[in-house]
């Protein structure tokens, strides 16, 4: 049985993801469209929140992916630091903009939902604030990648930034919690299925979450391929200029 590190070979990674990518992408489209249509058209309005409850199908999965994308970047950065596989560093780079967009979606849908429900677009609530800070971390990470020309240097620096940033993101989360008790309801979901989300809303939500996860995986595969190719091209051009 081949070890998982075989996929750290860029060529092997491109070949494998090329084969998997259409399936993941197709499945992502099916679950995402299916889940959103199910949620949008075929779920009742909540008796308290009215139809705004339908925003949950975008808000919760995107918030989930915003955090998980950072976690994935953290793991990829660790792999880069420990084993120095280029694909890993490039995957972290590829995931960052996706995570940033997910954070924006979570923030925007949350603001739109908050306007009628809490009577305000924005409150300095711990969860909201932490997400804003997370977004700043994404921006800094992406900006650092773009600022450095040498690929290996950029990978090293950004992976250290990702590690340090993770620690500070968690710290900020607790600091913000301490600073202001919030409006935001507690996690409305957990694995043991809390009672505050009824089944009618829960099942389409699961489908949407699966859709977002698949979408993320597909995008990261695709964007990592792009990064690998772009780097290979830079290497070829550099070699050509030398000879």
């Amino acid at each position: 049985m081949a070890s998982v590190w075989e996929y750290a070979n860029p060529k092997k990674f491109i070949e494998t993801t090329d084969r998997i990518l259409p399936w993941v992408a197709g499945l992502a489209v099916v679950t995402l469209v299916g889940g959103l249509i199910w949620g949008f058209f075929f779920t009742p309005a909540d008796y308290r929140q009215g139809s705004t409850v339908k925003i949950i199908y975008l808000h919760v999965p995107s918030a989930l992916m915003a955090i998980n994308a950072w976690l994935m970047m953290l793991v990829a950065s660790l792999i880069w630091i420990v084993r120095r596989h280029h694909v890993s560093a490039l995957a972290a780079r590829a995931a960052a903009p996706v995570g940033a967009v997910m954070t924006v979606i979570a923030l925007v849908t949350g603001a739109i939902w908050g306007q009628p429900m809490w009577g305000t677009w924005w409150a300095w609530d711990p969860r909201l604030t932490s997400f804003l800070i997370l977004f700043l971390f994404y921006l800094g990470y992406i900006a650092l990648w773009q600022a450095i020309e040498n690929d290996d240097t950029a990978a090293d620096l950004t992976s250290v930034l990702c590690l340090v940033g993770s620690v500070f993101a968690v710290l900020s989360r607790y600091a913000v919690n301490f600073w202001n008790q919030g409006l935001h309801q507690g996690a409305s979901l957990s694995m043991d299925k809390e009672q505050n989300v009824a089944d009618v809303f829960w099942y389409p939500l699961i489908v949407c979450m699966a859709g977002f996860v698949l979408l993320f995986v597909a995008l990261v595969f695709l964007r990592t391929q792009t990064e690998i190719r772009a780097r290979r091209m830079r290497a070829l051009l550099a070699r050509e200029r030398l000879s």
């Binding site: 800094g140 340090v164 607790y174």
Partner: peptide, 27 residues
């Protein structure tokens, strides 16, 4: 140290450092 090699890294450094200042500032 992160931005030492970058020309005109001042703005980038602010973007990197300010989120890290959040916990200190809050407390």
């Amino acid at each position: 140290a992160l931005t030492v090699g970058i020309k005109r890294g001042g703005l980038l450094m602010s973007l990197l450092v300010l989120p890290l200042y959040v916990p200190t500032l809050i407390f």
